[in-house]
Design a protein around this nucleic acid. Sequence first.
RNA 1: GGGGGAGUGUCCCGAGCGGCAAAGGGGGCGGACUGUAAAUCCGCUGGCUAUGCCUUCGUAGGUUCGAGUCCUACCUCCCCCA
Length: 419
Amino acid sequence: MTDGFRPKSDFLRALTERGFVHQCTDAAALDAAAAGGLVAYVGFDCTAPSLHVGSLVPIMTLAWLQRTGGKPIALMGDGTTRVGDPSGKDETRKILSLDAIEANKAGIRKVFSRFLDFADGPTGALMPGNAEWLAPLNYIDFLRDVGRHFSVNRMLAMDSVKLRIERDQEMSFLEFNYMCLQAYDFVELHRRHGCTLQMGGSDQWGNIINGVDLGRRMDGAKLHALTTPLLTTASGAKMGKTAAGAVWLDATMLAPFDYWQYWRNVEDADVGRFLKLFTFLPMDEIARLVALGGAEINEAKKALADEATALVHGREEAAKAAAAARRTFEEGAVSADLPSVEIAARELDEGMGALAAFVRAGLCASNGEARRQMKGGGLRINDRAVDDERARVGRADLTAEGVVKLSLGRKRHVLLRPV
RNA sequence: GGGGGAGUGUCCCGAGCGGCAAAGGGGGCGGACUGUAAAUCCGCUGGCUAUGCCUUCGUAGGUUCGAGUCCUACCUCCCCCA
């Protein structure tokens, strides 16, 4: 999309050289606009209580915007979450209650405060919710002012709709309207904040373009669209899944140690790409790290883990995670900074079944699974393999640190901490 | 409106003469080998107070000692004719 194009603005140059750009409208015009106080937004839905690494790419585009003198807007889809985006979904997404949406919003807000500076000022970030303008909409007015600009013929031709129809999957009128609402968001943000660029994942291209068109039709505005590539790992898997599920950005949903580990364990072939996308390290530093060959590439992975974790959880947590990893993997010692689960001291006095302990620690889903893992040699207590399903964990198993270390496989460790 | 077909293990795809906790994949987890990588090989992949018990094959009934499998009704989807 930007073949041969050399952006002059700091913003577009950073995005381009770091691999954030998948498609974009009129790169030259956008580049010119980016030279002076560009206002751009990314929309996020509120279907989960936190964001996960899948959202990190668009978040980073906002962070880069702010760092290069622009004003970022993180639009919360608290209005559209009540409708449901059909894009890329096989079936109707469930509609959440207002309370759930509010709770999710609060969780997501925490994440953003790490990446963006919300202080007042020309480059201060904003986080509005689209319910602000969608909720008061009057149906007749909306049809007359906005609906008239949408061609049903064209909407039917869009991938998000076409695929559903081709597969004979039901798509309600409600969902069909999602793209109109999202397009309208762009117009509102343009009117309210002078926002002229919407960014998002490549699957959002159609929706974003609708907003660009609507802005031109309604206000004669020159709006821009920029999408980021859909990220997969070098072996083709979707990003953001671990044994424990999604890689959440919230410390209560995924411990900083596990977050650090996620990045530490990326495939060799992904390190360079990820360093560019998920850290602010300068390009020459990244080039140096990527040039490391063989086992030395692990240094680059540690740098990636340190930087990526620091962005989400702060320097201090990142350093603790790195130290805990060093003690655990390189020295084979017990680190007090491993993720831990508290249990009543009395339970430990009475002694609990080893299998139950693993379930308690969240490492196994059931006693049955724990038993199977044990048979496969995957369970260890204080680094000693469990070989008897009737083994018990008691006070005698406390280490010098006053904890019991449970391990599933080589990489997953949880401390039982009596209280 | 008429005719034909499909819905299977709560990740997905998919076999399944009336004895079935149900073949086989993919994915995932564990083990070995490594560098906390990749590739490769091996094991596991319903629950439990466990030589037994409980819950699973679209939903609800029925036949049967016994139903994923047969019958009836219903729901959802696909194809053909009008």
